[in-house]
């Protein structure tokens, strides 16, 4: 299920039409990799929720449960290190899908020296220069111009890289997003804008916050093509990623992907989630869950048996348990760390 914004450029014949995305046909190993990654993110987030409940993780903690197919399908289409990735504060899944060790992510959540930001960033502020992961940004929408800046750097260097810029349906109402759309199209920057539409900006549903709630059309007045994608199906996501990346890499400028997805948990750990019914959440879990769907298909297509998938689950649980142990046992930062890294240089 992918919908296209049919207008402006296409209608006017100014550019090629964005091709209709095709649901990805994975190799058996590829599908198992997708499955494993989605499972890793889910188990990781479940564990993070538990550690939060135990007081080992503090502050804000936004879980990605339900949205795993989005980042899994998209990250599988890029080259970490060559391409750039930036997102908002719901970033644990993006880190994992970018190939970052779950232990250093979890240790960051528990505020330990072994954390990827040495315990100074926490849930919302994680980076990896090595993997081309540029955060982890706590201010809603701020990552969008930053993503365009990463794309600017790719174009400036001519290195062929693309900046994958994730933001939510809430951030889609920030003014700076549209300032960025304008420059990105004006300068034909190699950026894929990914709106992860999980239906709720904190407690406000998309329809209550957005005059145009079909968010894939939000680039229209900037002549940015948009696609609406079933973000609960990793193969639909992966298929759309191919179209988007081909478009951007061929120098046609940015493209917008609206990923229709859903988060099962509250906005953050402190969210009582009174703005939606239990039935609604339950319905999505039962009917649309991206992991269940992959599981069913993998088994139906004979790629793996139920038992083999259970073995993957056990391995993932063990990996997450190990990450949690590591994050619990790793020491807190030395007090001397308080004043380091404020500036790079000594003046």
């Amino acid at each position: 299920m992918a919908r296209k914004a049919a207008r402006t450029k296409e209608v006017e014949g100014r550019f090629d039409a964005v091709p209709e995305p095709v649901r990805h046909s994975p190799s058996p190993q590829e599908y198992l990799d997708f499955y494993r990654m989605m499972l890793l993110i889910r188990r990781f987030e479940e564990k993070a929720g538990q550690l939060y409940g135990m007081g080992l993780i503090g502050g804000f903690c936004h879980l990605y449960i339900g949205q795993e197919a989005v980042v899994t399908g998209l990250q599988a289409a890029i080259t970490p290190g060559r391409d750039s990735v930036v997102t908002g504060y719901r970033d644990h899944g993006h880190m994992l899908a970018n190939g970052i060790d779950p232990r250093v992510v979890m240790a960051e959540l528990t505020g330990r020296a072994a954390g990827i930001s040495r315990g100074k960033g926490g849930s919302m502020h994680m980076f990896s220069v090595e993997k081309g992961f540029f955060g982890g940004h706590g201010i809603v929408g701020a990552q969008v111009p930053i993503g365009a800046g990463l794309a600017f750097a790719h174009k400036y260097r001519g290195d062929g890289g693309v900046a994958l810029t994730y933001f939510g349906d809430g951030a889609a109402n920030q003014g700076q997003v549209y300032e960025t759309f304008n420059m990105a199209e004006l300068w034909k920057l190699p950026v894929v804008f990914v709106i992860e539409n999980n239906q709720y900006a904190m407690g406000t549903s998309v329809n209550r916050a957005s005059a145009e709630d079909q968010l894939y059309r939000r680039g229209e007045s900037f002549r940015i093509e948009g696609l609406q994608v079933d973000g609960m199906d990793v193969l639909e996501v992966r298929g759309a990623a191919t179209v988007a990346l081909d478009w951007v890499r061929s120098g046609k400028g940015p493209i917008l992907l609206e990923m229709k997805t859903y988060r099962y948990r509250g906005h953050s750990m402190s969210d009582p989630a009174k703005y939606r019914t239990r039935d609604e959440v339950q319905h999505v879990r039962e009917q649309q869950d991206p992991i269940d769907r992959a599981q069913r298909e993998i088994v139906a297509q004979g790629i793996a048996t139920e038992d083999e998938l259970k073995a993957i689950d056990r391995a993932v649980r063990a990996e997450v348990a190990e990450a949690a142990d590591f994050a619990e046992q790793a020491p807190e930062p030395e007090l001397s760390e308080l004043v380091t890294d404020v500036l790079a240089e000594t003046y």
Binding site: F134, P145, I146, G149, F152, A153, Y156, R157, M183
Partner: peptide, 11 residues
């Protein structure tokens, strides 16, 4: 913001 991204991206 775009400048910040470009700086983080190595420019």
């Amino acid at each position: 913001g775009l400048g910040v991204g470009a700086a983080m991206g190595g420019l």
